[in-house]
Nucleic acid binder design. Structure first.
Lengths: 211, 211
DNA sequence: TATGGTTTCGAACACCGGTTCGAAATCCAC
DNA sequence: GTGGATTTCGAACCGGTGTTCGAAACCATA
C-alpha cells in the first residue's frame, strides 16, 4: 500500500539485495557516525555522501528520504538489541541476575554499536508518523523488560514507583553517552557492575563484590 | 577586548538597561521555550521573532548572534541554579539531608524553569569556544557539589566509583526531561523522594518513609 | 556481443537559514 | 518642541539544504 511495486527495484522495499547489501550497511554505519556526532539535523545528506563516496543523488536509491535513513538505522539496531534482550530474559535466573544481564547487554551494545545506539537514544523525536510509531513500540517493549525486573526487585508495592525506578535506571544508562570517553574511562563492564551494585545495596555499600 | 565600546550601546555588553530589561527577559523565555521543544538548530531566529513580536533584524540588538542567544539562556539560568545550590550546601546538615536538598532544588528548578533548564541540559554542545568554556565551568562546579555529597555517602573508597555514581545520579535527574509529563505524572517532590530513597536503600527497599 | 534491468551520477530546482545595514521610529533630556 | 541617542524595522544577501530526474554507467544473462 505504501511503497508498492514500480518497475524498478530499490534495495529497501524488496528486501535483501545480493551485492548492494554491504553498501547499504556501510551507508547506515557512516550515517550513524555522523548523526551521533553532530545530531540528525546538523548532518546533511551531502555529508553522508562525502563520507561514503556516493554521489548526492545516488544515495536516494537506498532510502526514500532523510527521515527514512534515520528510521533504518534505528529499526535495525534497536530491533536486534531488543531481540537479544528478550532472548536473554527468557533464559531465567534470579531477578538480580537478570537485571545484571540487562545492564551488561545494553552496555555491550553501547560499546559495539556506539553510534547507532546513540542515535536510537537521542533521535527518536526526529521521526514522525508511522516511522515514529514503529520505533516507539520497540522502545515500549524494551522498557517493559526492565520494568518487569525492577518490579520484582522492588516487591511491586506501587505501580508508579516501579515505573519511576525503571526510568531512573534508563536515565543512568542513557546518560553515559554524555560523558563516557572510551580512551580515559574504565571499561563498561565495570560501570555495569557498579551500577547494579549501587541499585542493589544503595550508596552506603561501597563495594558489592570483589573488583 | 571582545566587544569593546562602539558609540551605540547594546543591552548586553553595557549591563542592565532600564526599560529594555523586561523585553530581553521575554526574549530569552520565548527562545528557551522554542529551543526546548524543537532543539537549537531546529529553532530559527525567525521563529523567535514571530513568537516575541520582534522583527527579524530587530532582535540582533539584544544578542550578537544565534549562539550568543543560546549562551545568554544557559548562563542566566544555570548560573542562578548553581548559586542556589552552593548556598544550600553551605547550610550544612547530614550527607543524606544535603543530597535530598540537592535533588529537590534541582527538581524545583525543573518545574519552575523547565524550558531553560532543558536547554542547559541538552544544548551545551551547541556552544563553542569561550562561550562553551564558561558554561562548562559552571557545570563542573555543579558536578563537584553532587560528587562531594555522594563521596561522603559512599565512604570515599574509590575516586572513580564516586565519579561514576555522581554521573549516574545526574543521569537519573536529567533523563526526566525525556519522559516527564506534568499533566499525567506525579509531582516532582515525590519523584525526588523516591530517587533519594532508592539511592539510600537500594531497590530492595520499596519505601523509605511514609508516603 | 546484444539486451534489459540495476545502480550511479550530476546538474538543477525551490526553499530556508543566519546575518547585515541603512533608514525609520521611538524615547528622553533640555 | 528640538536634538541626539536608543531601539526597531524591513529588505536584501549569500550560502547551504533536501529532493528530483533524465541520462549515463554498470552488470548479468541470453
Amino acid at each position: 500500500m505504501t511503497d508498492s511495486d514500480t518497475s524498478t527495484t530499490s534495495p529497501r522495499a524488496g528486501g535483501a539485495t545480493p551485492r548492494t547489501a554491504p553498501k547499504l550497511e556501510k551507508l547506515l554505519t557512516s550515517a550513524a557516525a555522523l548523526m551521533a556526532a553532530r545530531g540528525f539535523t546538523d548532518t546533511s545528506i551531502r555529508d553522508v555522501a562525502g563520507e561514503t563516496g556516493f554521489s548526492l543523488g545516488g544515495m536516494y536509491y537506498y532510502f526514500q528520504n532523510k527521515e527514512d535513513l534515520l528510521f533504518l538505522i534505528q529499526e535495525n539496531t534497536f530491533g536486534s538489541l531488543l531481540q537479544l534482550q528478550e532472548a536473554s530474559m527468557a533464559e531465567g535466573g534470579s531477578a538480580e541476575a537478570r537485571l545484571r544481564r540487562l545492564v551488561h547487554n545494553h552496555l555491550g551494545y553501547f560499546t559495539s554499536h556506539f553510534n547507532e545506539l546513540k542515535v536510537c537514544t537521542f533521535e527518536l523525536e526526529s521521526l514522525q508518523g508511522e516511522r515514529y510509531d514503529k520505533v516507539a513500540e520497540l522502545r515500549r517493549r524494551y522498557f517493559a523488560l526492565l520494568a518487569g525486573v525492577v518490579g520484582e526487585l522492588t516487591g511491586d508495592s506501587d505501580e508508579a514507583r516501579v515505573r519511576h525506578r525503571a526510568l531512573f535506571v534508563f536515565g543512568m544508562l542513557n546518560w553515559i553517552f554524555m560523558w563516557y570517553d572510551a580512551g580515559r574511562d574504565q571499561p563498561v563492564e565495570r560501570l555495569g557492575d557498579e551500577m547494579v551494585d549501587m541499585l542493589m545495596g544503595g550508596l552506603a555499600v561501597p563495594d558489592g563484590r570483589a573488583r
